[in-house]
C-alpha cells in the first residue's frame, strides 16, 4: 500500500516537474498574450475599488477614488467597464461607461450629474492622462498586444524580460518599452518606457500582488515620470471576480442610476 502511494506521489512529482519545465516559454507573442490575460482579464467579470494619489512636480497631491465594474465579452477581446467616481467631491457621481473594442475605437460615455447630461466622448489618443493621473487611459484598459512587435531579450529565474516596439511609432510617445513579466503569474511587474533619445522617462511598477479567488491580482502599483514631473500611486481593494454581472449593467441606465447591487462591497472582502 505504502509503495503504491509512493509510486503515485513520484509520478505526480514527475508530471509537475515536467509541467513547470513546459512553462519555460520562448515565444514572445505567447508570453505577451498570457500577460494580457493575467493583467486585464482575470475571471469573466470583476469588481474593485480603486484610489489614486497623484503627486505633481511641486509635490502637491490630488486624490481620486472610484469603483470599477468589468465584464469580458470575450477573453482577450472586447470588454465593458463602468467606473463610478466617489472622490474628490467635484467629480462625485460622475459615471464613465466604456465599451472597449479590440482593433477598433472604444465607445465611451460620461454622465455629468449636475447637468443630467450623458456626454459621448469621441475616440482620442489613449496615451493621455486618465482623470488627471500619471496613468494613461491605456494603462488602465490595456494596450492591444498586436500594436507592438515583441522580442524576448532574456529569461531570468523570476521574469521574462521583453522589449516591445510600436508598429506605428507616430501613434505613441515612446520609441520602445521593456516589461518584466513574472514567470509564475504572468503579471507585468515593471514597465520602462524609452524615448527617441534612448532615455528611460517613465516607469510603471507593481508594488503588491495578492491572490484573489485564485487570480494573482495587482493591489498596489505606481507610475513615475522620470523627468521629474511627479508620480501617481494606485491601490485596489474589495476585489471580487466572477460575480455574474449581467450585460445590462453596462448601459445608459447605469449612468443615471448606478447599479448599487453590483457596486456595493462584497461581504467579507478587504
Amino acid at each position: 500500500m505504502t509503495n503504491i502511494r509512493l509510486i503515485i506521489l513520484s509520478a505526480v512529482a514527475l508530471v509537475l516537474t515536467s509541467a513547470s519545465q513546459a512553462e519555460m516559454v520562448t515565444d514572445p507573442d505567447v508570453i505577451v498574450s498570457r500577460a494580457n490575460l493575467a493583467a486585464y482579464y482575470a475571471g469573466a467579470d470583476g469588481r474593485s475599488e480603486a484610489r489614486m494619489i497623484i503627486r505633481d512636480a511641486q509635490g502637491r497631491e490630488q486624490r481620486r477614488q472610484f469603483t470599477v465594474l468589468r465584464r469580458d465579452v470575450e477573453d482577450g477581446g472586447d470588454q465593458d467597464f463602468l467606473v463610478v467616481f466617489r472622490q474628490p467631491s467635484d467629480v462625485r457621481g460622475t459615471v464613465f461607461l466604456v465599451k472597449k473594442h479590440v482593433g477598433a475605437d472604444d465607445n465611451r460615455w460620461l454622465y455629468l450629474p449636475g447637468l443630467d447630461l450623458v456626454k459621448r466622448i469621441s475616440a482620442g489618443d489613449k496615451r493621455t492622462s486618465f482623470v488627471g493621473a500619471h496613468y494613461f487611459y491605456e494603462d488602465i484598459s490595456g494596450r492591444a498586444p498586436d500594436e507592438d512587435h515583441h522580442t524576448l531579450i532574456r529569461t531570468t529565474d523570476e521574469f521574462y524580460v521583453l522589449e516591445h516596439t510600436p508598429k506605428d511609432p507616430s501613434s505613441v510617445e515612446f520609441s520602445s518599452y521593456i516589461t518584466w513579466i513574472a514567470r509564475e503569474t504572468y503579471l507585468p511587474m515593471k514597465i520602462e518606457y524609452t524615448n527617441t533619445a534612448g532615455r528611460v522617462y517613465r516607469r510603471v511598477e507593481v508594488v503588491e500582488v495578492k491572490d484573489i479567488g485564485g487570480h494573482p491580482t495587482v493591489t498596489k502599483s505606481r507610475v513615475i515620470d522620470l523627468d521629474g514631473k511627479g508620480e501617481t500611486s494606485m491601490e485596489f481593494r474589495y476585489i471580487a471576480y466572477d460575480l455574474g454581472i449581467p450585460e445590462t449593467v453596462f448601459t445608459e441606465r447605469s449612468l443615471r442610476r448606478p447599479p448599487r447591487d453590483w457596486l456595493k462591497r462584497p461581504a467579507g472582502k478587504k
Binding site: 475599488e49 484610489r51 494619489i53 486624490r63 477614488q65 466617489r86 472622490q87 481593494r237 474589495y238 448599487r260 457596486l263 456595493k264 462591497r265
Partner: peptide, 11 residues
Amino acid sequence: DWGGDEWEDAE
C-alpha cells in the same frame, strides 16, 4: 485625508 487607512464607503 488618506494618511490613515479609511476607504470611504458610500454605501
